[in-house]
Design a protein around this nucleic acid. Structure first.
Length: 220
DNA sequence: ATTTGATCATGT
DNA sequence: ACATGATCAAAT
């Protein structure tokens, strides 16, 4: 699939997918459907990237670089609520102590997002999960403010050696959680006395309650 | 070794 | 029931 040349074209492609099951789409794209996502956790996201013409591969770029738009699949239950938090990006644990919010990866990644809900309760076989109606989102000033507040608080803690006191419960809408191959993977960070320490790599995630609000706004 | 795509699975 | 902490695979 060639990259979409405009947001309109992207959304037309996106809306054409609504109602399809993952199995139907996979068949059109000649992809095999895994029995479950225990191993291929990113399978759904990669299938939809391919279907919409996102630039392949895992570059540190938006999925649609020409449009500056990021694609996020959003697993939802039968009530339309998010089943999971949404991963945003890795958290820089060193060397970013005086980065501003507007320069941050979180802000840039979330500046323009195509949310694509997928009915994905665990008791539904992967092939039978249904693609929903995608919608474009740009944070309102109120949403920006919430995100910025959480980001600044978390980044301060990271810079001041508080990373080992941060848990998922920190933040109203944005949280910091492990993002690693396993609990033994380590990366460099700042310790409580400013010394270098080894700690788990972390990522920023949007809490499910926040994405639920986005769904409510988009669909009532 | 890191970033992309995330979901799994346990603890509360 | 739900969120937090743990984990998996592909691409680079």
């Amino acid at each position: 699939m060639t990259p979409p040349s405009s947001p309109d074209q992207l959304m037309q492609r996106c809306h054409a997918l609504a109602g399809y099951t993952l199995g139907q789409l996979a068949q059109e794209l000649a992809c095999k459907v895994p029995a479950n996502l225990k191993r291929e956790k990113g399978w759904t996201g990669q299938l939809l990237e391919q279907a919409l013409g996102a630039s392949a591969g895992s570059k540190a770029e938006p999925d649609f670089p020409e449009l500056g738009i990021e694609l996020k699949t959003l697993p939802i239950n039968r009530q339309g609520k998010p089943l999971e938090s949404t991963y945003v990006c890795v958290a820089p644990l060193t060397g970013s102590s005086h980065q501003s919010w507007s320069e941050s990866w979180v802000c840039r990644k979330l500046s323009h997002v195509l949310w694509l809900p997928v009915l994905a309760e665990r008791d539904i076989p992967v092939a039978e999960r249904v693609i929903g109606t995608g919608f474009l989102w740009q944070p309102t000033s109120a949403e920006q403010k919430l995100l910025q507040q959480d980001w600044e608080e978390l980044m301060d803690l990271i810079a001041l050696g508080g990373i080992d006191r941060i848990r998922g419960a920190h933040g109203q809408v944005l949280q910091l959680r492990p993002k690693a191959a396993n609990s033994k993977a380590l990366t460099l960070a700042v310790g409580s006395d400013g010394e270098p320490i080894q700690t788990l790599p972390r990522g920023f995630y949007l809490k499910a309650h926040f994405t639920q609000q986005l769904l409510s706004k988009a669909f009532g």
